[in-house]
Design a protein around this nucleic acid. Structure first.
Lengths: 131, 131
DNA sequence: ATTTGACCTTCCTGTGACTGGAAGCCCGAT
DNA sequence: ATCGGGCTTCCAGTCACAGGAAGGTCAAAT
């Protein structure tokens, strides 16, 4: 399978697939003409990575996940631990984003949004946090 | 004011403050000994940037905000537009994170998390999205 | 007067996860 | 034969810094 087909099959850009080879997440064979030649296993691996990345795992976490995946004697506890950690990370981000949203919303709500130069948003930035 | 004091006053690392000078967000004077010498105005600018960054504005958006801030004849509508755009961006991120959280949570909940090698998380990754 | 130690300077490199582009093979069809 | 598309490598850029080396400066303690 050529890289273009793999790109279509996985939804990953070819550039990204080459990058994943660069950092040794995948090791495709080479055809006689120098083209990368992906086996079914490579494609699975790439699809695996794509889904894990989409769930917010970093490349290094994907690497861990893959080694766990490769390891027949892994325990599901290892994998779960990673997922649980990711979950609390996501919760932290959610909190941050929510409070950020609230601040920004109240700022925007109090801004009349016309041609006058007075603007509570700018003033807030200039003045400092809720004093 | 030396960079260290500014760092303390604004909460920004000195490295970051120098970086902001590099990309021309601030232009502090220099003392005779070559040290950066920050005026009150520079410190305000930096604090401004810090708060805007903390609210999720990118450096370039900060630049826009600053030019708006510098511009006596700005309209508050310009600033509000930026804030409103940021808001919907945040909402998009919140949605993404929430659905990501849900997926990961259900995966983790279905994982018994013991020593057995079977693991629904790994299987999900290997199999592909909800089939 | 010297020596510490903290602070400051510049410059270079690295991060994460790609993305874009240039220069140049390769392959199938016309 | 040549054309378009796909493939290759390599280099550079992105964003917003962070880390560290090599060296100048300053205030205080010895």
């Amino acid at each position: 399978m050529n890289i273009g087909e793999v790109a279509k099959a996985t939804g990953l850009p070819a550039k990204t697939i080459r990058y994943y080879e660069d950092i040794k997440l995948v090791r495709p064979a080479r055809a006689g003409n120098g083209y990368r030649d992906y086996a079914r296993d490579d494609v699975h691996r790439l699809a695996f990575i794509q889904r894990a990345r989409g769930l917010g795992f970093t490349i290094n976490e994907c690497r861990q996940l893959l080694s766990l995946y490769d390891d027949e004697s892994r325990s599901s506890a290892d994998v779960k631990a990673l997922a649980v950690e990711k979950l609390s990370e996501i919760d932290r981000k959610l909190d941050e984003l929510n409070s950020l949203r609230a601040t920004l919303k109240s700022l925007a709500d109090h801004c009349h949004g016309d041609d006058r130069p007075e603007c509570p948003i700018i003033e807030e930035f200039a003045r400092g946090p809720a004093s």
